[in-house]
Design a protein around this nucleic acid. Sequence first.
DNA 1: ATTTTGACGCT
DNA 2: AGCGTCAAA
Length: 625
Amino acid sequence: MKSNTGHRNDQGRVAEEGEEVCGEQLGAMENARKRCQAPSTSKSLMATEDDPYKIDPLIALIDMDCFYVQVELRLEPEWRGKPAIVVQYKTRHKGGGIIALSYEARERGVKRFHHADDAREVCPEVKVFVVPELHGKADLTRYRDAGAEVIRVMKKHFHCVERASVDEAFVDLTKEVKQLLPRYLSKELKLTPEALGSTCIAESHSVEAWLDQLYLKLEEDPEAFVASSVQLNNFALAIGAVLVNDLRQDIINVTEFHCSGGISYSKTLSKLACGLNKPRKQTVLPGNAVGPLFNKTNIIDVRMLGGKLGRSIIENLCISTMGELCKVEVPKLRQYFSEETARWLASLAVGIDNEPVQERDLPKSIGCSKNFLGKEALSTREQVKKWMEHFVSELSVRLKKDQAENNRSASLLTVSITYVKDPFKIKSGQSCSRCAPMTSYDNEAMVYDAFMVADRLLTSLGYRNGRYHYAVINLGISASKMRDGGFTASRIDSYFRGQKKKEVDDSQIFPGNKYSELKVKGRDASKIQLGKAKEVRERKGSITKYLNQASPRKDAQGGQASHHQQQKVRTEHMESKSDTETRLGQLLQATRSQRMGKVRRLFPARFTDEGGTRLGGRQRRRVPQ
DNA sequence: ATTTTGACGCT
DNA sequence: AGCGTCAAA
């Protein structure tokens, strides 16, 4: 039985018009290259005389296993091997909420979304670590710093590393693997199970068998092997697995932290692969395993489909797996989603996301926030100011460290507020944010600016007898728009030039303060009717804006929530479409390159049976030009 | 009533 | 500029 049965059976007829497709594709790739800071991905698709091997992009995701727990266990190693959890705010609701749990704790029935008290009930011996508190709030510095340690090791191995969160990062392995390819093909280096270490192969029981199959094909006909993108891609995948295994071992050596990894052709596939064998394992996801895997993958479990969009796919199309989504034709998708969304989904349904790995190992913003629920809700100026001071105390330390270590300074200070009428009858609060230029890391200046924007907003919503009419249930500040270097005179000058006279009386709350002549930027909330604006959005905006405007189908939405689109950029560098009939044809144009004037691939070879371990089918498909 | 982050797209 | 969505511990 074929390993990809049921997955894309319409691949027979694909693109046929040659030059046109090539032309479009080169244009699309050019766009992709411009956006990608590390152009290795698109370059890798180009076969040249110097570089005869053409492989697909190779992307890994490294994800630390129950990271916060590991960070705590490194500090208190005596708890290693025992069930352990990390909770926030021990003294609050039910002993604090779990934000990380060890695999030992999971085995004993502790669940995410449990609280510390629940965990102790099912597992009395569980070790409970509590997130440090500083300035009256949870302080995650310890985990951020540990995450930075890991990123440093990764940067030592690879140029193109994208910090995706505090504990995970994507790596573009393409360039490194390409460089090694000739040495492995020539047998100077050998792919062995030992070299692959803790590697698993998705949809395969044995790494050994998978490697054996690979080498069997190579021995059989070396020329055919290097000419077959299926074989070459599998081979590259195996090399990638070696590199990632080495990286993971180095991370252990340097940081003591264990992690899992996924190695495949896109962020989406790598992420999915990474989750297949946790903890302390890495998973290779070859092209021919994507179909079978997708047949049992819930749509919700795929990156970017875990929210409203995924739910609306499931409801509208009455399907639940990626395999089913793959069989839905683009026109059908267009009934429910915009043209761009439809195409993006069609790509995603075969594992293609066209998202380059951005070379970025530092966060783009630094912030802190806190919820104030129920009776904790803030309703006086003094309370808000006090918390701004707390936030700034934490933030300024983090900002100054960032400035010293990374030679950059934030230029924008943003205050975020969620407020409600009655904090005891919370449905969903109104969220809003206001910003001010950031021209120094002076605590007093930051407190003043942050408080002023917050107070202006809240006061405009109603203020009487020392209380705001609305209660603040979430408050946060964040620094962003990082610029190289420190603060310069010109930046400060331009800030002062931009100031107008202040309009809010701050003489009592900031007696005699040195900023009293300044006024922060920002709109007057009283004039913009926040509540109403949001209401209008909910009524019409979010529904219509994602619909295909050309074919009105409002009924199909059934009042569903919005379908958030982050795919616009991505679809941009997919082909702009010729007249290919099948969806498959549309997909491959953007994702495959052709060797001009030589072999032209009909479809992404990695998704075919060729090279599958037990198929013994045809070697490769070619279309004579 | 998990909470605290962070990135990014849309308008 | 400000809001919403998605995601990770």
